[in-house]
Design a protein around this nucleic acid. Sequence first.
DNA 1: TATGCGATATTCT
DNA 2: GAATATCGCATAG
Length: 207
Amino acid sequence: MQSVSHVAYDVRRLSRAGLPLGTAELARYLVGKTIVRNVGRSRIVGRIVETEAYPPGDSSGHAYRGETASNHSLFLGRGFAYVYFTYGMHYMLNVSAEEPGVGAGVLLRALEPLEGIKLMERRRRTEELVDLARGPGRLAVALQIDQRLDGVDLCVDGPLWLGTEARKTLHIGRSVRIGITREVDRLMRFFEVGNPFVSGPKSLSMK
DNA sequence: TATGCGATATTCT
DNA sequence: GAATATCGCATAG
């Protein structure tokens, strides 16, 4: 029997012009879209099922205190990768939002694995499908993300890009964000309702 | 399902 | 020195 990881999905790159203006709008738009990681001759494809918006002026966002060497990618305009390292061991992958010169980003928090599942299993050291990319740290490991991908244009052919949806997206829910201590009440987290690959407590992902 | 803890490195105070 | 957009393992309910 053919393994799921060998199915080729017909996903095409999202164009920058097609990305909505506004950080929250982009975060919502990206739920159901795909992310494609080319590594060597193989590729990994995941369906984005959970995101968080960190809009301009939000004190929980990394761009809040202005542009620095480390958060530069958040200011490139929309559709670029912003990769950072936290908790001493985890990389996080964001998509920059807003116009060039304005710092904002969308954190990709969870994927539904579609293609390259064997590669993800190897990297994650587990064969538990729902755990491969559920949570931002796991997602980065599964996609082989590190600081070398910081600043990559996600709208051109290359090591990492955003793709069209592989299937219809049903209901998109909204909640507070996870793991932050400032601006905790803003409803800036988006997810596909009922999708088992969404991270966080179930109580946050009902609607 | 919830809560607690330790691991670990970069950034900011 | 403290905090951190987390994870995996432990234990309890």
